[in-house]
């Protein structure tokens, strides 16, 4: 969302600063750039409108009580979104809790501690990790990870925890490489100041470098979460696809769940266009859209604060 704003406002700003005396070739280039920027906004608008048109009726036709119910069972016209929300939440939060500390620690190791040869070996490997198709990871999770989780004592291997592990694995490369860039960008002057006071290497990293890289680390986390929330196939394969709210008693994370994305993917093929079930699936889409929008806005607020701090120094 941030990106499209920039693309659209850039050419406009240029047009203001330089008046008519410019080449016609340049005028065309400007129009093309402007068109590209505006079309992005236009397309996003269209997608949103379509989503609203198909999904909003569900909120009218299905009673709020039903929507807030604890059962998603379309055959009996039960459209409770809660189990799906809880499923997505468990898997996503689980993934974040696993991936953010792990990613940050790995980034710190790579950027601050590892000798050069290790860094040069590990960085490309992490890029490769990012390139593995999610379906391959899902397959691995199903074949290799799920049995392990079951052996560890869960009633079944296909659980929210298994999904969270796979998602964490998928978002790690993003979190690591963006956090590492952010740590790398911290001016050497800060490290020098800290060391010159008598702080140890570790105190310098933890109390000076990491806080100074905060905004970059937030971006890394959000992009990681973004990937986790939106991911469908791999999660569908390893979470067991049970659309019920896991009970607290037996450990929520170690029971099968179903996420919002998995529900849409699994049921889209079998619904009649325009039916109530069809509209309910689009309603899930709207909820997902609002969620990601909220997370992105929160992130740009957090990042905005950090940026202001930094730019006032330059």
């Amino acid at each position: 969302m941030l990106k499209t704003e920039q693309a659209a406002s850039l050419p406009a700003a240029q047009a203001e600063t330089t008046p008519s005396r410019r080449h016609s070739g340049e005028w065309w280039i400007e129009q093309i750039i402007r068109g590209a920027g505006l079309s992005t906004i236009f397309i996003i608008g269209l997608i949103f409108l379509f989503l609203l048109r198909e999904g909003l009726p569900a909120f009218v036709r299905i009673s709020p009580l039903n929507l807030l119910g604890v059962r998603w069972y379309p055959i009996e016209e039960l459209y409770g979104l809660l189990p799906l929300l809880v499923g997505s939440l468990l898997v996503t939060v689980g993934a974040v809790v696993i991936a953010v500390p792990l990613g940050l620690i790995t980034a710190i190791y790579l950027g601050e501690i590892a000798p050069l040869w290790q860094r040069e070996l590990l960085k490309p490997l992490i890029e490769v990790l990012a390139g593995i198709p999610s379906i391959v990871l899902g397959f691995l999770g199903w074949v290799a990870l799920a049995p392990l989780v079951q052996q560890a004592g869960a009633p079944t291997g296909l659980t929210a925890f298994t999904g969270a592990l796979i998602l964490a694995y998928m978002s790690l490369p993003t979190i690591i490489s963006i956090s590492e860039d952010a740590l790398y960008a911290v001016p050497k002057e800060y490290r020098d100041a800290s060391l010159a006071i008598g702080a140890t290497e570790w105190q310098t990293i933890w109390r000076v470098v990491v806080p100074a890289a905060r905004s970059g680390i937030v971006i890394a986390t959000v992009l990681g979460i973004g990937r986790a929330i939106g991911e469908t196939m791999a999660v569908m394969m390893v979470t067991g696809n049970a659309a019920n709210i896991p009970s607290l008693a037996t450990g929520m994370f170690f029971q099968p769940v179903r996420t919002m994305t998995a529900t849409i993917a699994a049921e889209m093929g079998e619904v009649a266009q325009g039916s109530l079930h069809y509209q309910a699936l689009f309603a899930i889409g709207i909820v997902l859209f609002l969620l990601t929008f909220a997370i992105n806005s929160l992130a740009s607020m957090l990042i905005g604060g950090g940026k202001q701090q930094r730019s006032s120094q330059l």
Partner: peptide
Amino acid sequence: VTDLRQRVGMVFQRPNPFPQ
């Protein structure tokens, strides 16, 4: 070395307060 640097402090060319 950390003890030494506590006893022998340093002020740098460009003011470098932490962003805190």
